[in-house]
Amino acid sequence: MQLEQMYQEIILDHYRSPHGSGLKDPYDAESQQINPTCGDEIVLRVKLDDAGEKVLDVSHETLGCSISQASASVLTDLVVGQTVEESMKVLAAFQEMAQGRGKVEPDEDVLGDAVAFAGVAKYPARVKCALLGWMAFKDAVVRVQDGKVEA
């Protein structure tokens, strides 16, 4: 059974009771991402501080599989309270692990609970599920920053 490698207990826990689930107000920007191969969908909102440097809040509504839901949940835990810069480092590390075909040794100091997704990297078809929330987060942050530049 390789299933447990992919669906580690941490993932199943987050799936059963996802953090940050349910869209919240106020927020600075929202991003919708769709996985075109399966139709899964996430809408994610971010709220940054006035300087645009710190992540104050993340909320999301995810219509998708256990991997995409758990990933969005873990993301919420990892980035809320961090600086935008730090959160982007976590994102980069997560993306590297997820796309590493199981050959990237994840750094637990950076990724925390998200190391549980290392097993998913061995299943190329599921990588997009794991990344869906992270792509929404990145897009939303860029939107806030673009908005601030324009303002």
């Binding site: 899964d40 998708g64 599989c65």
Partner: peptide, 19 residues
């Protein structure tokens, strides 16, 4: 979710389409 059903089936050697 269909993806998760497919993953369990795949683990048993059963190839189906999900999505």
């Amino acid at each position: 979710h269909a993806h998760d059903v497919g993953q369990v089936l795949d683990d048993r050697g059963i190839a189906v389409r999900v999505g």
